[in-house]
């Protein structure tokens, strides 16, 4: 009898722990810069959704391209209509893993350098990428931050020659997510 209670206790404790392993956000911030000295082209999306499994180091990330907002309305329209074709490819996503999971202690407060490796899908094109990032643990929650560059041509995003001097060939992407236990 005692054994059974012990087992049940251990199991229930484990169940609780398992749910704690998944962290989630719906309000991840993604900034995108593809401007030049001639023109600023900055888009911000505050509605990215992401999940991290702290035991396995898995990361899932998805956002709606239409949720990127620009200072200039016409730029936003062109971004959706001419470059990202958001009606055809409404989402961008990342699916991958933290490769140096051992270096990140999700249980102790602090800042850890992390590297994520996985598949980035933009404009319907999927590429393997490795991106550097930082994980900051505080009060049992943590934030993930990453800045990396992508070549527009890698993802089949065509820039016509008339505006080629206004748009960078490489876009800088900054991601900032505050994860909460799910």
């Amino acid at each position: 009898m005692k054994n059974i209670i012990l087992i049940a206790l251990l199991l229930s404790g484990f169940q609780g722990l398992q749910a704690q392993d998944i962290f989630f956000t719906r309000t991840g911030k993604v900034e995108f810069k593809a401007g030049s000295s001639v023109e600023d082209i900055d888009g911000v999306n505050n509605e990215a959704a992401s999940m991290i499994h702290t035991k396995t180091g898995e990361i899932a990330f998805t956002l709606l391209v239409k949720s990127f907002h620009f200072k200039r309305a016409l730029m936003e329209e062109h971004f959706n209509e001419n470059y990202m074709e958001s009606t055809v490819y409404p989402k961008a996503s990342f699916k991958g893993k933290i490769t140096n999971l051992a270096a990140v202690n999700f249980a102790a407060a602090g800042q850890y350098n992390a590297t994520a490796e996985g598949e980035l899908t933009i404009h319907g094109v999927t590429k393997k990428v490795t991106v550097p990032g930082k994980i900051t643990v505080q009060n049992g929650k943590f934030s993930g931050q990453s800045t990396f560059k992508i070549l527009l041509s890698d993802y089949g995003i065509k820039v016509p020659s008339v505006v080629a001097d206004k748009i960078a060939k490489e876009a800088e992407i900054t991601v900032l997510c505050q994860y909460e236990p799910k």
């Binding site: 959704a49 499994h53 035991k55």
Partner: peptide
């Protein structure tokens, strides 16, 4: 159970996220 749990999670984190959104 942890192997089971892991297996379930590895295949489904993306679909879990999509379900959530």
């Amino acid at each position: 159970s942890s192997i089971l749990a892991q297996k379930k999670d590895t295949t489904d984190l993306m679909s879990m996220l999509e379900k959530e959104t």
